[in-house]
Design a protein around this nucleic acid. Structure first.
Lengths: 209, 209
DNA sequence: TTTTTAATCAAACGTTTGTTTAAAATAGAG
DNA sequence: CTCTATTTTAAACAAACGTTTGATTAAAAA
């Protein structure tokens, strides 16, 4: 198995799928960017759908786990982190993860695609990666949430935070139009601070109560 | 001009474009659903892209304006509405607008698609519909936002609210998985209440200050 | 050395794509 | 009814699509 060719195809496929969607990209476009033959997709992945599934299994899951690792590493040493630390770390893990801006972007794009219209690729990904992370976040945030909420109510708070991260990433073009700001590092820093502040107040936790 | 056939095509096109994206749908699929001939798209809209533009001009823009009218109607009589009223009305206008759930969903799907990767269809739509609404919202909310913020900072607050509305609508499948709740009317009511509460605290306005 | 395996390639497969054409059907006015 | 303009239709087009094939290469195994 020549993993180099296979990896080049995976990389090109991930980029193009995120950018244009499954139907927006042709196999030839992928193999051209990867510098391989059209037939190589069949050779390594069976068919186009198999390639899409592989992108999810081997690239998305990996990346999501890395984001989570980063989150836990920053939280890690603190047994009972403050609400501010949890939220800021969460926003940063998503918006300033250890990937290039391009990589982070395409990760979120594919996530959004699947959260909306899940393919077969998603169910395992959800069970193994998404769900455990959400559950852990709920545990972590619970002490700071209004009392007496059901689990279903508490998860909404986590979703409100994630919602902002996702939207500020995915609606970049519109947001740049409306704010007049390009997505520079400085602007992203400002977004992280805004999301943190908004969400911290959003959960309505006050240390002085 | 036989508007009946033309309208059927527009309706089918909007549904399918929202669901699968521009490249995910074939002209034949659209005309089949509309119950017309393949060539009718050429006859009424020139080509596939022209049909997509027409969907935006004639369906999306109309709908967005209706949502905004609903918002202003509920706000209307009040010259200086409270922060709570503004936010609740905003959340409701988006999540409980005078359309069917299906209609609202496909509207938001297309919005998200274009906010992410805008086509020519978007620029006019943005200039005439989106931007004015955002600007008006900023004006309305400004008295309740932290003082001394630039316009660019203030728009972020509006975006945080919209972000939640969009995400709770678009990531339905994932959210149902994670909460264990199907998207019933009762659940959507709960979402509206949650978003309102979270966002109201999020802007950190307190009448007692 | 001979045989087997892994990898890549150009070429072609049958379908589906968006688009166009020209004829047929329909509708409305005189 | 007749004539004309509008609308709908079946058929065909080239181009692009995903997929498959059989040949070719080079390295590994026998």
């Amino acid at each position: 198995m020549n993993t180099r060719t296979r990896d080049r195809i995976l990389k090109a496929a991930e980029e193009l799928f995120a950018e244009k969607g499954f139907d927006g990209v042709s196999v030839r476009e992928i193999t051209d960017r990867a510098g391989s033959n059209v037939a190589s997709v069949h050779y390594y992945f069976g068919n186009k759908k198999g390639l899409y599934l592989a992108v999810f299994r081997e690239r998305m899951a990996q990346r999501a786990k890395k984001v989570q690792e980063l989150f836990w590493k920053e939280i890690g040493d603190d047994p009972t982190p403050s609400a501010e630390k949890i939220i800021k770390t969460l926003a940063r893990a998503f918006l300033k993860s250890p990937f290039s801006k391009k990589e982070r972007m395409l990760h979120h794009k594919l996530m959004a695609r699947e959260a909306n219209r899940p393919t077969e690729a998603y169910s395992i990904f959800h069970k193994e990666v998404i769900a455990p992370f959400y559950n852990a976040l709920i545990e972590l945030l619970s002490p700071y949430l209004p009392e007496g909420l059901s689990r279903q109510d508490r998860v909404l708070y986590v979703l409100s935070i994630i919602a902002q991260v996702m939207h500020f990433n995915l609606a970049r073009s519109m947001i740049s139009h409306i704010t007049g700001q390009p997505y520079t590092d400085r602007f992203i820093d400002r977004l992280v601070n805004h999301i943190t502040r908004f969400s911290l107040y959003g959960i309505n936790y006050r240390a002085d109560r």
